[in-house]
Design a protein around this nucleic acid. Structure first.
Length: 512
RNA sequence: GAUCUCGUAGCUCAGCUGGCUAGAGCAUUUGACUUUUAAUCAAAGGGUCCUGGGUUCGAGUCCCAGCGAGAUCACCA
C-alpha cells in the first residue's frame, strides 16, 4: 500500500489520476526520483532527424534527447514511444535486452511524463529515424492525464488527427495543454514574436528610442474608449489603466526626443469578440519634423520589411486571399472612395443630407446619429469591405480626429490616414496637431460631447495641453494594432488565437 | 448587450417521439507479443449526463432559471 501526504485528497481525483499518484510512490520505491534537478540534453528531436546519415550514423552514436511522452506502443519485450520537445517529435526504441530490469519499471511511465533518453540514433525497419535507448530517465512525472490525439500519416504525406483536442473553451483556458497537444499553434506565437522583433529592430536601426510610459494614468486619453478604473491606496486617488499612450509619447517629443515608440499593452473596458480583447497590444511611434505623407511611406516600407523578413516573401495568404505587402500600397482619399463605391459626392453635406444619402444607399443608421457617425457608417458598410489589398485611406473629417492636424489645403479635413487590409483597419496615423489653441478647442469640443452623454469622448488633459503650449515640433505619429496585424499575417480570424491567454469569464460561478 | 446553437467518461463523440444497470473509439488497468507507428488481440475498471428547480409512475432526453462556451449581429482597436 502506498502512502501520500494527506493534502492530496484522492477521493476528488479520477481513477486515472489516483493511479498516477500511486505510480509516483511506486517509482520512489524503485529508487526513481520522479522530479530530478537537471538532464544533459545534447540534441533537439528535429536536430536528430535532420542530421542523421544512414551511411555514417557515428556522429549520433551517443546522444541524449528529452521531452514529453506522447505515444507508447509496447510489444512485449520491446516498446516504441514518441517524445515531443520544442522542436518536434522523435521516436524512441526501448528494448529489454538493453535496459534489463528497468524495462519492467517502464510500465509506471505514462503519456505526459517528461523523460530523458540516452542512446544512439538509427533507422527502423519501417524507415523512421529513432533513438535506441541505453538509458531512460524520468525527469518529471505527470499525475494528470493529458488529451491524447492520435495522428496518422497518410501516403500523400498529409497528417490526419483523431480525437484531437478541439474544445475552444478548454484550449483557451488551459493553453498549456493546447500547446502540448496542438503544437502547430506554437508557430503562430513564434511568428508573433518575430513580427514584433522585426518592428523593434526596424525602429532601433533608425535611431528611434523605445520608451515606457505610465500604464496607470490619473487621466486617460489619446483615444475614445471606456477605461478600467482602479484605486491607489497611498495617494487615495482613482487611476485609470491606459487606453492609449499617445499623449505621453507626445510629451516626450516636446521634451526633445525626435523619435520615440512604445509597444504598449492597452486596456479598454468594452465588449469582447473575435477582434476585441480587454487588454491588447498597440505600437505607437512619433517622429519629429515629419508629416503623414512621410509616415505613409515609412509604414509601407516597415510592413513590407517585416513580411519579407518573417515570411520570406511580400505575399501572405489570408483565408484563401493573397495579400501583397509590396510597397507602395494603394492610396485613396476618403471622399474619393465614397465617390467610387457609393456613386455619391458626400463632400460638405449637412447632417440631414448625409442621413438622406444613407437612406438612399440602404445603409441603416440611427436617425439621431451625428454627421460623423453617419459618414462612418456608410464608409464601413459600403467602402471598407472593398479594401482587401493594403490601402491607405487619407484625409478624414476633422470631427473624427481630435488629435490630428488640420489639413494643409482642405478645410474641414485633417491630415490623417488609416491602413486597411482585408477590410480591416490595421494602422492609424496623422500629422500631429501641435497648434495649442486648436488642440484646446478640439478637446473642449470633446468635453462638450462627453457632457452630452457620450462617455467614450475624450477628457481634457491640462498637462498635455500645457506641453503642447510649450511647443511641439511638427510631428508624424502612427499606431499599429499588433494583435490584428499578427492575425492578418498568420491567417487567424480570432484575436484569441494570437493571444496565449485571452480573457475568459471565470469558470465557476460564485453564487453556488 | 441581443439572437441562435451547444455542455454526456481524461479526450473525441453517440444516446430517436421520456422507458431495463447511460454507450462507442482512444486513453487507463490486467494478460499475449523483441523494429512498431491511429500497432494488434483478449478481458476489466472508469460517469455530479454543467448547476438548481419543475412536469411525470419514470428525465441525459420535456419546461423554467442560472452558469460557461461558440457563432451571428450591434459598439469599439
Amino acid at each position: 500500500m502506498v502512502s501520500l501526504p494527506s493534502m492530496i485528497d484522492l477521493s476528488t481525483r479520477s481513477e486515472q489520476e489516483r493511479r498516477r499518484f500511486e505510480e509516483l510512490e511506486l517509482l520512489r520505491e524503485h529508487g526513481v526520483n520522479p522530479y530530478p534537478v537537471t538532464f544533459d540534453k545534447t540534441h533537439d528531436a528535429s536536430a536528430v532527424l535532420v542530421s542523421f546519415d544512414d551511411a555514417d550514423p557515428a556522429p549520433l552514436a551517443d546522444i541524449a534527447v528529452a521531452g514529453r511522452v506522447m505515444t507508447k506502443r509496447k510489444m512485449g519485450k520491446a516498446s516504441f514511444w514518441h517524445i515531443q520537445d520544442h522542436s518536434g517529435r522523435i521516436q524512441v526504441y526501448l528494448k529489454k535486452d538493453d535496459l534489463g530490469e528497468f524495462y519492467d519499471v517502464l510500465h509506471l511511465f505514462d503519456i505526459g511524463d517528461i523523460v530523458g533518453i540516452r542512446g544512439f540514433a538509427f533507422r527502423t525497419r519501417t524507415g523512421e529515424i529513432s533513438v535506441h535507448a541505453r538509458e531512460v530517465v524520468l525527469l518529471a512525472k505527470s499525475v494528470v492525464p493529458i488529451p491524447v490525439a492520435k495522428e496518422e500519416q497518410k501516403d500523400d504525406g498529409s497528417v490526419v488527427k483523431y480525437d484531437a483536442f478541439v474544445d475552444k473553451e478548454q484550449r483557451y483556458r488551459k493553453r498549456y495543454l493546447d500547446l502540448i497537444v496542438n503544437p502547430e499553434i506554437r508557430e503562430t506565437f513564434r511568428k508573433r514574436a518575430q513580427i514584433i522583433s522585426e518592428m523593434r529592430r526596424y525602429f532601433d536601426e533608425r535611431g528611434w528610442l523605445e520608451v515606457e510610459t505610465p500604464i496607470l494614468q490619473p487621466l486617460y486619453g489619446g483615444a475614445t474608449a471606456r477605461p478600467f478604473v482602479t484605486h491607489h491606496n497611498a495617494l487615495d486617488v482613482e487611476l485609470y489603466l491606459r487606453i492609449a499612450d499617445e499623449l505621453y509619447l507626445k510629451r516626450l517629443i516636446v521634451g526633445g526626443y525626435e523619435g520615440v515608440y512604445e509597444i504598449s499593452k492597452n486596456f479598454r473596458n468594452e465588449g469582447m469578440d473575435k477582434t476585441h480583447n480587454p487588454e491588447y497590444t498597440a505600437m505607437e511611434i512619433y517622429v519629429a519634423y515629419k508629416d503623414y505623407i512621410w509616415m505613409m511611406e515609412m509604414t509601407e516600407d516597415l510592413l513590407q520589411s517585416i513580411v519579407v523578413k518573417v515570411f520570406g516573401t511580400t505575399t501572405v495568404t489570408f483565408a484563401g486571399t493573397d495579400l501583397s505587402f509590396a510597397a507602395p500600397f494603394r492610396r485613396a482619399r476618403m471622399y474619393d472612395l465614397f465617390d467610387e463605391y457609393t456613386g455619391k459626392n458626400l463632400r460638405g453635406l449637412s447632417r440631414e443630407e448625409l442621413l438622406a444619402a444613407a437612406v438612399a444607399l440602404n445603409v441603416p443608421v440611427d436617425p439621431k446619429a451625428s454627421a460623423m457617425k453617419i459618414l462612418d457608417e456608410i464608409f464601413s458598410v459600403l467602402v471598407q469591405p472593398h479594401l482587401i489589398q493594403p490601402t491607405f485611406v487619407m484625409d478624414y473629417p476633422v470631427e473624427m480626429s481630435p488629435l490630428a492636424k488640420a489639413h494643409r489645403t482642405e478645410t474641414g479635413l485633417v491630415e490623417r490616414f488609416e491602413l486597411f487590409v482585408m477590410g480591416k483597419e490595421v494602422a492609424n496615423a496623422f500629422t500631429e496637431l501641435n497648434d495649442p489653441i486648436d488642440q484646446r478647442l478640439r478637446l473642449e469640443e470633446q468635453a462638450r460631447i462627453r457632457a452630452g452623454g457620450d462617455d467614450e469622448a475624450m477628457v481634457v488633459d491640462e498637462d498635455f495641453l500645457h506641453a503642447i503650449e510649450v511647443g511641439m515640433p511638427p510631428t508624424a505619429g502612427l499606431g499599429i494594432g499588433i494583435d490584428r496585424l499578427v492575425m492578418l499575417l498568420t491567417n487567424n480570424d480570432s484575436i484569441r488565437d494570437v493571444l496565449f491567454f485571452p480573457q475568459m469569464r471565470p469558470e465557476r460561478s460564485s453564487d453556488s
